[in-house]
Design a protein around this nucleic acid. Structure first.
Length: 274
DNA sequence: AGAGATACCTGGGAGC
DNA sequence: TGCTCCCAGGTATCTC
C-alpha cells in the first residue's frame, strides 16, 4: 500500500535508474488499469532522453525531453522492477519499458488500481494537468499549522477523512493517518472543524516526523509494496497503532480498537485519543 | 456546493 | 481439503 514514503522511495530509485536513458520500445499487455494504457504506444515517447523523475503527492512524474511526461500512480499494488530481457513475464506484468541500455523496467500490478498516463507539459519541470488540484506537500514549508487549521475549519467530516484528502495535503493514506492521529492524541472520528490550532501544530509536527522516519526505513511493506530491488520497506516494525487491533496500546496498554467509517478501517486507542 | 456512497480489482485469509 | 465470502486500498465519478 504505497503512501508518500513508499512512492518517494520508488521515485528516488527510478530517478537514479532512468535519467539520461530513453525508452526504445514500450510493450503493453493489458488494455487498461484504472485508465487505458494505449496512450503509452505513442511513438513520441520513444527515444527521448529522460530528464527528470520526481514525486508529487502519490504520483511519480517521469519527464522526457520534448515536453512529454508519464504520470504514474501505483494504486495499491503497483510495483516497478528492473528486469533482464530473458526474465519470464510474470502474471500481472502489464507494461515492459525497454531501455536503450538493453535493460528493462517492468510494471506489475495485481489489483490494477494503478494508472500510467502520458501528458504534455506546459514547460520543462511543469506539472501534468491532472495534478493541478492537489493540495500541499506535507514535507514542504507550506504545510503549516495555520494552513491546516484554516482548511479544517471548512470541513465537517472526521479528521481522519480530512487528513487523507489530497486536496488538503497529499500523500497520507490509511496507515500513516492512523499513526499521525495516534501520536497526536486525536480521535480519528473528531470532526475536522473541532480540531484546535494546538492540535494542528501537533499534527503537522507528527506528520513530518512519521513520514521522514518512514522514508528513512524505505517505506512500510504491509503486503505488496516492494522497493525496486524487490526488498521490503522496514517501517512496518515501527507502526504503533495500525494493524494492532486487540493488542495493548504502547502508551497505556488499553487494547487498540477499530472502527469503520467511509468504508475504511481506523485503528486507535480509545483512551489516548480524544 | 459539499458530502457521502460506489465502482474499480484480485489475492489472501477466515469460516464453514 | 475445498469452497465461498469478505476485506484491503486511493481516486474518479455519481447521487443526493
Amino acid at each position: 500500500m504505497p503512501e508518500l514514503p513508499e512512492v518517494h522511495t520508488v521515485a528516488s530509485a527510478l530517478n537514479k535508474l532512468l535519467i539520461g536513458k530513453a525508452f526504445e520500445k514500450i510493450e503493453i499487455f493489458t488494455e487498461k488499469l484504472r485508465l487505458p494504457l494505449s496512450p503509452l504506444l505513442d511513438s513520441k515517447l520513444l527515444n527521448q532522453p529522460i530528464i527528470d523523475v520526481r514525486r508529487r503527492g502519490r504520483y511519480i512524474v517521469i519527464e522526457l525531453s520534448g515536453g512529454i511526461a508519464l504520470t504514474v500512480h501505483l494504486g495499491m499494488t503497483g510495483v516497478f522492477r528492473e528486469a533482464k530481457v530473458s526474465d519470464e513475464r510474470r502474471k500481472h506484468e502489464h507494461v515492459i519499458f525497454h531501455l536503450n541500455d538493453g535493460h528493462q523496467l517492468r510494471f506489475e500490478c495485481p489489483r490494477r488500481f494503478s494508472s500510467i498516463v502520458s501528458s504534455v507539459l506546459e514547460h520543462p519541470g511543469g506539472e501534468p494537468s491532472m495534478l493541478k488540484k492537489l493540495g500541499v506537500e506535507p514535507l514542504k514549508p507550506d504545510f503549516t499549522a495555520s494552513y491546516l487549521y484554516q482548511q479544517l475549519q471548512k470541513r465537517k467530516c472526521a479528521i481522519k477523512i480530512a487528513l487523507m484528502d489530497n486536496q488538503i495535503v497529499v500523500g497520507i493514506g490509511n496507515i500513516y493517518a492512523a499513526e499521525i492521529l495516534f501520536k497526536s492524541g486525536i480521535s480519528p472520528l473528531r470532526p475536522a472543524n473541532r480540531i484546535t490550532m494546538k492540535d494542528c501544530a501537533a499534527l503537522v509536527k507528527n506528520t513530518c516526523s512519521i513520514l521522514n522516519a518512514a522514508i528513512k526505513a524505505g517505506g512500510t511493506t504491509f503486503s505488496d509494496y516492494r522497493q525496486l530491488d524487490g526488498s521490503e520497506g522496514k517501517f512496518v516494525r515501527e507502526l504503533l497503532v495500525y494493524g494492532r487491533k486487540g493488542l495493548p496500546c504502547v502508551n497505556c496498554t488499553t487494547p487498540i480498537e477499530t472502527i469503520s467509517h467511509g468504508g475504511r478501517t481506523s485503528f486507535y486507542c480509545p483512551k489516548c485519543q480524544k
